[in-house]
Design a protein around this nucleic acid. Structure first.
Length: 323
DNA sequence: AGTGACTCCTGCCCGC
DNA sequence: TGCGGGCAGGAGTCAC
């Protein structure tokens, strides 16, 4: 599932190809992928057609492409993309057969002379939104000033999303202060995109394992050292995933399959219930990764490396088998 | 404010 | 083999 690293791979792929191209035509094959565009399909097509695309931006799992009108300045707007569970943005320049779950197709012009890249020999191309489960979607939004006073512009519907750990303006101090003010559980907080963004179920579990913190620790008990350890772990796991995800696309074809490669090799807890904890094994202990139900999804963790908070020890959660 | 329930959706995997 | 149920999950909304 696309979390921050996978979305960043997509952003980089788009950045190499779409800036300065114009949207010549829009074809919507499935209206459900426009669920979040309140004005409806016809308005989406009308408003998007004829715009020129800028440099793709990202915050957390949200991606957007700033748009301008070449013939006269409209207000600042953007095409916002959320990949949801299974969304892909694919660049096609060779007339590839439509993918089974192709939902929206944008026909793009070549970038204008004289500034197009010398290696960019493809005059026309398509940008395709493919999405099996239709949890993702596209919509148009206006750009507003970032709420924290930074100079950047951000879609109005993304303004409530917190800065992500790879954002240069991300602040550990601010995160720690806000985390401590909460009265909740740690993983719940990590998944709250208005506190810290870009983290989903998989990287939450991976980062908690790396930081040796139990997912149900009370947020108000997390000390400064633990916060720093946690953020370091989040940054490390995302940076590593990003590096490995970078192998799944080339300069023209943006293959958004963040799952390939990384998932098999580098995950330590997610999908490993019942298998040995590798950190424990290094120290000569045999501990099995556990999986429990939490927030209507699953949580995987090492019961030894990530000690259960004292208050919870007498009432273990539902185990989800495999152990 | 925090939390649970519900919704959106498809495909896969399981048991019968 | 075929069918039905359960599961997976990001995020918005609503009720308590």
């Amino acid at each position: 599932m696309p979390e921050l690293p996978e979305v960043e791979v997509v952003r980089r792929g788009l950045s190499a190809w779409i800036p300065r191209r114009e949207v010549e035509a829009v074809e919507v094959l499935d209206d459900r992928s426009l669920r979040r565009h309140a004005a409806g399909r016809d308005a989406f097509v009308r408003q998007l057609t004829g715009t020129r695309m800028g440099e793709p931006q990202r915050r957390g799992k949200y991606l957007w492409i700033p748009l301008t009108r070449p013939n006269g300045g409209d207000q600042d707007g953007a095409l916002v993309v959320h990949l949801g569970m299974s969304g892909q943005m694919l660049v096609d320049t060779t007339g590839t057969t439509d993918q089974p779950h192709l939902r929206i197709r944008l026909l793009l012009s070549s970038p204008p002379e004289p500034h197009h890249r010398p290696d960019d020999v493809t005059p026309l191309g398509e940008l395709r939104f493919v999405d099996q489960r239709i949890f993702g979607g596209l919509y148009l939004d206006r750009l507003i000033a970032a709420p924290d006073g930074a100079p950047e512009l951000i879609p109005s519907t993304v303004a409530h999303i917190a800065r992500d750990p790879l954002d240069p303006r991300f602040s550990l101090d601010a995160f720690h202060t806000r985390l401590r003010r909460r009265t909740s559980e740690l993983k719940r907080a990590l998944l709250d995109q208005s506190l810290i963004s870009g983290i989903g179920n998989i990287y939450a579990d991976e980062a908690l394992w790396r930081a040796r913190l139990h997912y149900r620790r009370r947020t108000e008990t997390i000390n400064r050292t633990e916060s720093a350890r946690l953020i370091d772990a989040v940054e490390d796991v995302m940076t590593q995933a990003l590096a490995e995800g970078g192998t799944s696309f080339d300069s023209l074809y943006v293959n958004v399959n963040g799952a390939s490669g990384y998932f098999d090799r580098s995950l330590q807890v997610y999908g490993r219930a019942g298998q040995p904890c590798r950190r424990c094994a290094e120290q000569g202990r045999e501990t099995l990764i556990r999986r429990e139900k939490f927030m209507n999804r699953s949580s995987a963790f090492c019961p030894v490396c990530q000690p259960t908070p004292r208050a919870l020890r007498s009432s273990p959660r539902d185990s989800m088998g495999k152990i």
